[in-house]
Amino acid sequence: MNPAASVIIFTVFSGFGFGLLALLGFGCSGAQGWSAFFLWGLGYGFAVVGLLASVTHLGNPQRAWRAFSQWKSSWLSREGIGALTTLFCLAPAALGAIFGLPIWSVFGPIGGLLAVMTVFTTSMIYAQLQSVPRWNHACVPLMFASFMAAGGLIVLGQLGQALMGLGLLALVLIVGFWIGDSQFPARAQTIAKATGLGHMGALRLFEAGHTSENYLMREMIYVVGRKHRMKLRVIAVVLACFVPMLLIAAGQGGDIARGLGLLSHLCGACVARWLFFAEAEHVVGLYYDQR
């Protein structure tokens, strides 16, 4: 699948933003005043930038409001509704923390729960697609949830919690790569099933019917990314998990160490998300005899 910058920024930024907001909502930080303003601002900033990036992905962004209507069937619609509801629901909690009105924090846990649900709906946009076997697996929501937790814990968790979150993320990523690799073969979708001509002999594409690339090939047959997949996987896990772990451990959970760790984590998350798209193979590639 095409790793478009807009969807990478959308999923990474909003995932981190909602992760931080969820922990803030659950009351993991006792920050007040300016430090609360900074933390909530960081969460809101990332979540909103991520959502805006997703809007730039659209062919007709002026109609984006229509995406709130189909919650009954569409995970993408649920994601939009979840995101906005979370942001509105947490606003009183944020203002309460900044201006010292503890009673408003009752909105926090509800908003935190909504944030978790929102990230789940984001992951289901991809995990629901049978046409992309690598994504159509429970490890995708687990991966999104792990990123959400790890990102939030880098900022807010105690030293041990941050390290544990990052360690868990590394494990989920590695297992996810391993499971993901076996998904396309496991579905047994082949050029023979795609065309129904398997009984005639070994099949290959003779002519694609058109001489230049088209939307389908640009969007769903992204072969470039797989050349360096192993190196990129190592880079992703090291940057997203191991470097932040080392920095935070070395800095004894200090603010500068956490800041640098977060920077590295987000870079690693972008690499991992780029791979998430670039590695995923769509079954339509079978008609082109390419994956």
């Binding site: 007709n60 109609r63 769903m220």
Partner: peptide, 13 residues
């Protein structure tokens, strides 16, 4: 809105 998700969901291109 041109989000492209339906094209992704279709196995047949």
């Amino acid at each position: 809105i041109g989000c492209g998700l339906c094209a992704w969901a279709c196995p047949y291109g």
